[in-house]
Nucleic acid binder design. Structure first.
Lengths: 176, 176
DNA sequence: AAAGATTGAGCCATCAATCTTC
DNA sequence: GAAGATTGATGGCTCAATCTTT
């Protein structure tokens, strides 16, 4: 075969990265889901919804903003919030400032659910990701992920407007 | 709040890595799926099934081995292979050496499908992951992913017994 | 009995259509 | 008309039997 190809495919080195990368993409979400399902009986998506609400003012967010935070569609979020509502962890109310918008509001039980689930999930994050990496690799990983995200969707480079306290929640007994 | 906690949660630095990491975990599979769905009308999982078969001897694999390669359950694979069978890209045959096992075997059309889909998918891999990274980061990413995989499932450290040609396929016009 | 594989039921995500408010 | 949100239908994944071969 002549070397007639215009765009090369993947180099050996790239391919040897591609295999484990795909593995992580599939297995890490599954492992996080399993931990949450087992320890708290919620999905990873549900955990992020509770976390988003927990760490914003008044424990509430507009559905569309929460959908961005959870990396999900509005349609999916709507059905998940309905389930969380049935479990008594969230309630809905129209946004007083814009009648088109719906606010998802955390209940006291929902807040408690998040607080209870947080330590176990943080432990899983450390066990699966941060403990096996060096400090330098942890920092590298952040840069790598941000570059990949930007390549996938350049518009979302301006990160979601999170409450700055969101990160601190992971360091406290009582997150807020 | 006193600093009474036993196991710390996540540090600021770790949390600032966690957010984009989750983003990549959700968005990269979605982006790869979309590329394949749009350009080749197959899912990422189906692509990996075709790839696994394409790059093994006789273009065939046992169902259970292919399930490991595709990071999926045997049950899921069985149903996906049924769909690929309907589309004429795979056929099944009992393993002559062990009647319990089923061999999934690529047809000529299935092979052609893989060859046609490969360049576009490789291009996507470069666009989303390798182009935005430095060479050093690409190498780092491999080590990082392998460490994470080992933390999730130490048993799978001995990598799947792939045909060594599997990587070379990404560098050729005609993969095998 | 154990391993490999398949099937069917139930659950969840995706997509299009619909409704309300701006 | 456009944006936010919800609903219903479809397709696919998960889990628990079930079946066959070793």
């Amino acid at each position: 075969v002549e070397t007639t190809q215009q765009t090369p495919l993947l180099t050996d080195e790239e391919f040897s990265t591609w295999l484990p990368l795909i593995g992580v993409m599939i297995k890490l979400p599954a492992a996080l889901n399993e931990q949450l399902q087992r320890d708290a009986e919620i999905s990873h998506f549900e955990f992020w919804a509770l976390m988003g609400l927990s760490l914003h003012e008044n424990h509430s967010m507009r559905m569309s903003d929460l959908a961005v935070l959870t990396n999900g569609s509005l349609s999916r979020l709507s059905q998940v919030i309905s389930r969380l509502e049935k479990r008594g962890w969230v309630r809905r109310a129209p946004d007083p400032t814009d009648g088109r918008c719906t606010l998802a509001i955390l209940t006291g039980e929902g807040w408690q659910k998040f607080v209870d689930a947080l330590p176990g999930h943080s432990e899983a994050a450390r066990r699966f990701v941060f403990d096996p990496l060096t400090k330098a690799q942890g920092r590298q990983l952040r840069d790598i992920c941000e570059r990949v995200l930007h390549a996938i969707d350049p518009d979302l480079t301006d990160k979601p407007n999170l409450n700055p306290d969101i990160g601190r929640a992971f360091q406290r007994d009582t997150p807020c």
